[in-house]
């Protein structure tokens, strides 16, 4: 058995491969977009060290490294836990993105309609609220007040 083969460990779930205390996960870009991977990774940088590579076109390899390593066994368990949470979070982000792309336009229309009915999208009157006003005396008994330009 080669040194490399001996140094490779498999997590208890069998989902991940751990080599030199670095856990690696390959994700297919046709399932998980780059944005979903980045968005997920951003939220995990406070828990572990991450390095993302592109081993082949259409694939991302996410490598996890524990930030603190009190015990080797604990590192494996912790990494597996973090990687599992990462994959769940990645799926969550990708699903949100897919739903957004399918229903985003409808949501925009609903929001626009709601604002239109509330009347907040009407044209604003000219001038500023703090503008002084000029009073013009007309021959009639009515006083015409308009904002100064």
């Amino acid at each position: 058995m080669s040194d490399r083969a001996r140094s490779i460990m498999h997590s208890s779930s069998g989902l991940f491969e751990i080599h030199d205390k670095v856990l690696s996960v390959d994700v297919n870009e046709s399932v998980y977009s780059r944005d979903a991977v980045l968005r997920t990774a951003y939220w995990f940088t406070d828990r572990c060290y991450l390095h993302i590579t592109r081993p082949a076109p259409g694939f991302f390899r996410i490598q996890f490294k524990a930030k603190a390593s009190p015990k080797p066994d604990l590192v494996v368990a912790t990494l597996e836990e973090v990687a599992g949470e990462f994959l769940n979070s990645l799926l969550d982000h990708q699903t949100r993105q897919d739903i957004e792309s399918q229903t985003g336009r409808i949501r925009e229309l609903l929001v626009a309609k709601a604002f239109a009915e509330a009347g907040v999208l009407e044209d604003t009157p000219p001038g500023e609220p703090g503008d002084s006003v000029e009073v013009h005396q007309h021959t009639s008994s009515f006083v015409h007040i308009e904002p100064s330009s």
Binding site: R34, D35, L38, R39, A41, Y42, T45, Y49, L50, H51, I52, K65, K67
Partner: peptide
């Protein structure tokens, strides 16, 4: 000793902010 790993995390955070 973790400088390189910290470097990679920092670069990843900046890239994510920029791209997203």
């Amino acid at each position: 000793s973790t400088v390189c790993d910290d470097f990679l995390n920092y670069a990843l955070e900046l890239s994510a902010q920029e791209l997203l």
